[in-house]
Every structure is written in C-alpha cells, then in structure tokens.
Amino acid sequence: MKSILTDRQLAITIDRLSHQLIENHPQFTNTVLIGLQPRGIYLSDRIYHQLQTLLPGVQVPYGKLDITFYRDDYKSGKGFHTPNETDIDFSIENKHVVLVDDVLYTGRTIRSAMDAMLDFGRPATVELLVLIDRRFSRELPIQPTYTGRTIDAIITEKVKVLWKERDGKDEVVLIA
C-alpha cells in the first residue's frame, strides 16, 4: 500500500481545486456544482465548503447526482450497486455544470453521469473535476477539466480515497 496523498496534501489539493474553480467561475453566477453519488460527494462537500469560505455571501448551487439507474454494466452483473439519493433542487438548463467525482478511471461513470444529468435540463457547458486521474486507463474519450493528482497505475492496482467522515482519516492510497 502506497500513499499518494497525505491528509495535508489532500487539504492543499482541495484548496487549489477550489481556487481553480473560482478562477474560471468568479462569482458562480451561472455555475452549479454536482457531486456524484456515492463517493464523489465527500469531495464535493469539501469543495462546496471551501468555496463558501473563499466566497463569503455567494450562494453556490450544489446538488448530488446518483447514476445507478444509468450504468451500462447493470445487467452484466459486475457487482450490485445500491441506489442512492439524487438531490438536485434547481434547473441546470443553460447553466455551467461542474461534475465532481473522486477517481476518474475508465470514464464510464462520467458517461452515465452525463446521461443522468441531461434528464435535469440542457446545460450550457459541462466541466469535470476529479481528485485522482488514472490516466492511460480510459475506455471512453473523457478527460477532466480540473485534476487533483494524475497517477499511472496498472489495472490490478486500486486507488482508494479515504475520508475522515467515513473512514476516520483523510488519505489517498494505492493498493497493489
């Protein structure tokens, strides 16, 4: 097991990603943040709170999207995913959407997420923010707009993101 990001590095990375978002969306006037269930929301929660600190008085629209029913591997039987709550109480019609997930791997989750998202309207633009980009392992032409850390990992290795709220500590590790 190899550490990719320690808790301190993780905090700095989340801070940087938040600043990069503000760089592109100064007041979040027409921009919304959508975290992907179940694991992306830990990251999107952190970023949402960081944005609130950095932009006092600005209300960032923030939703959570569950993609279970949109997966393309449902019937192939590769593990059953329990559906989670989708909580988007605003329209994304003509908005700039920032999708947030923890690890970008094959790109299939993001493909499903874009499918699911379109049921809530037609966004003006869609950006993707991920904490870990496992490059060279994509099965679809999907690339992140904002990346916490890019890593090269072989297919048998597994990236695990630990969150204090759920796992007791903040850390990103590579399991061989």
Binding site: Y70, E85, D119, F120
Partner: peptide
C-alpha cells in the same frame, strides 16, 4: 429502498431512466 429512488425519478420532468 430502491422504490424510494424510483419515486424520486417519477417526480422529475423526465420520468424515465434507461436501466
């Protein structure tokens, strides 16, 4: 638990999923 999520889907403008 699954029905809870479908109930939510049925409240949306597009009441359909491609599962």
């Amino acid at each position: 638990k699954t029905a809870d999520q479908f109930k939510d889907v049925l409240q949306r403008p597009i009441k359909k999923v491609p599962s």
